[in-house]
């Protein structure tokens, strides 16, 4: 028994070694994926942020696949992804949005200079809806399928080469 015990430290060390070696070989995925993917959209009822543009109500986001974009006027990558969102809009995609911790004036100015791809904009003053979606930052873009389920989560800004992929995801979500 004592003999075995004397080798225990080496065995323990070997286990730890294997663990950290595996950590080194497979670099960590630092993005936080939403646990809500594949599940129905949580019940959201966000008031309209801008006059003339409706807010977000989960029940209305059904019938056809669409994008739900989580953005903010104070977010720099959101400016970078604006042209791609405009392109998606031109391709006939309905894009709804949740504005995080924002004000009507700031969003108005943001849309005036970067274009307005949004059909609806919900006002999420305290990031509650964002957390309910399992989103951890801005911008993020969710593909919502025809049945109102979250089909796909895109983390970070939408780059030019992401556009065909998102269109394919939307096609799949019909």
């Amino acid at each position: 028994m004592r003999r075995v015990l004397l080798w225990a430290p080496l065995v323990l060390f070997a286990l730890v070694f294997a663990l950290v070696a595996s950590g080194l070989l497979r670099p960590a995925d630092r993005t936080v994926h939403s646990a809500m993917v594949g599940k129905p959209l949580p019940a959201l009822a966000l008031p309209a942020l801008l006059p003339g543009k409706p807010g977000i109500a989960s029940a209305e986001l059904k019938g056809k696949p669409r994008l739900l974009n989580v953005f903010a006027s104070w977010c720099i990558p959101c400016i970078a992804e604006a042209p791609q969102l405009m392109k998606l809009k031109q391709a006939g995609v309905e894009i709804d949005a949740i504005a995080i911790r924002d004000t009507p004036e700031a969003v108005q100015a943001f849309l005036a200079s970067n274009g307005d791809p949004y059909a609806r904009i919900g006002d999420d003053k305290a990031s509650r809806a964002q957390l309910a979606l399992g989103s951890s930052g801005v911008p993020e873009t969710f593909v919502i399928d025809a049945a109102g389920r979250i089909a796909y989560q895109h983390i970070g800004d939408v780059r030019a080469d992401d556009v065909p992929m998102l269109l394919a995801q939307l096609e799949k979500a019909k």
Partner: peptide
């Protein structure tokens, strides 16, 4: 990562070696 691998190798040699020596000798 190269540096990480290098230090990990040193860690394995020194600590692993010393613990093996411990198991073999301390009895």
């Amino acid at each position: 990562p190269t540096r990480g691998t290098f230090i990990l190798a040193l860690l394995g040699i020194y600590i692993g070696g010393a613990l093996a020596l411990f198991g073999a000798r301390v009895g």
